[in-house]
Simulated assay, not measured.
Amino acid sequence: MMQLIKEECFMKNIAGITFFLSSFLIGELALADSIAIENKDKLNVKVMYGDTVYMKNNDERSYDARNPKEGEEWIRVVFSSSKGSEDFLDLKLRSSYGIDDAGRGCNYSLLMTEKSGWKLVGSDSGECTRSQDNYEPEAPHAHAYTVKNESEIPVYPAFSVEKDNDFSSDSVLGYLKPEESRVYSTTTGYWKNINVKDHVQVGFYNPYTTSYVKCSNELGLIDKESDFVFTKDHQCEKAK
């Protein structure tokens, strides 16, 4: 009997510690501003907070998250083509100093190409920069797919390619944190690596249940832009 009581107390302590750590991590994840960049043509990219350059590369995939300092209320993403032409986007930051009600940061994802334009996934409300779509797919099945996490827990985007419900998780850029999004197409890094061509099944991996949440029951044809949301009740909804 004493052994059972000790084991029960031990399990309660473990559960309490797990809950505390999970709550702490979720709180930490929710406060930063972030940007995830899909750069299939390896354009030269520079990410600036105010006048400070925090990231400069031509990687196919990159990610940055931080709590900006005072005076860094905007993030500027500068991208240069192989011909030397330069363009930029200015994005509002919400966890910056001077912004009221900065409970969550502004979280962006950006798909950029040299010839097909770019797509920014931002926010449709609040202080953050709105979404903008200047992307025209260069191939029949290169439409942009957006995944977004509207829950309070971090998850991984997941995809099945060869057969129904045979998912693999995209952990390359780390967790898709609360309020974050990512953009995919058949021309971008991760989908190329797992050989997505004209069909895909979208889902999310929930690390707390160690299971996949399906957005559909089977592979679907990539024939238009689509958005998928991991909801507050930990289900997947196809937004469009």
Rank of each mutant, 00 (worst) to 15 (best):
P178C: 03
K119A: 10
K56I: 08
P140V: 07
L111G: 09
I99S: 11
G103R: 14
G203Q: 08
V196F: 00
N13H: 09
R94E: 12
C9P: 01
E70Q: 13
L29H: 13
P178S: 05
F10Y: 11
V200L: 01
V200W: 01
D223F: 01
N44Q: 12
S226I: 12
G50N: 06
S34C: 10
D51L: 04
E72W: 05
K238N: 01
N193R: 13
I14A: 11
E38H: 02
T231H: 08
A30C: 06
L31Q: 13
M1I: 06
I17W: 05
K197H: 00
G105M: 11
F159A: 14
K92G: 04
F204Y: 01
L89G: 03
E7N: 14
A102M: 04
M11Y: 09
E60V: 09
K69N: 15
L29F: 13
N206F: 00
N13W: 05
K46Q: 14
N149G: 05
L29P: 01
E28L: 15
V78I: 13
E73I: 13
F230P: 06
N67I: 15
K232C: 01
K119R: 12
N39K: 05
V121W: 00
T186W: 00
T146A: 15
I99H: 03
T18G: 08
C236T: 07
V200G: 03
L93G: 11
N58Y: 05
G117F: 04
S123K: 01
G105R: 06
D223V: 09
E138R: 07
T129Y: 03
K148S: 15
D100H: 07
F159I: 09
K192N: 14
G174H: 02
A144E: 05
D223P: 03
E127G: 10
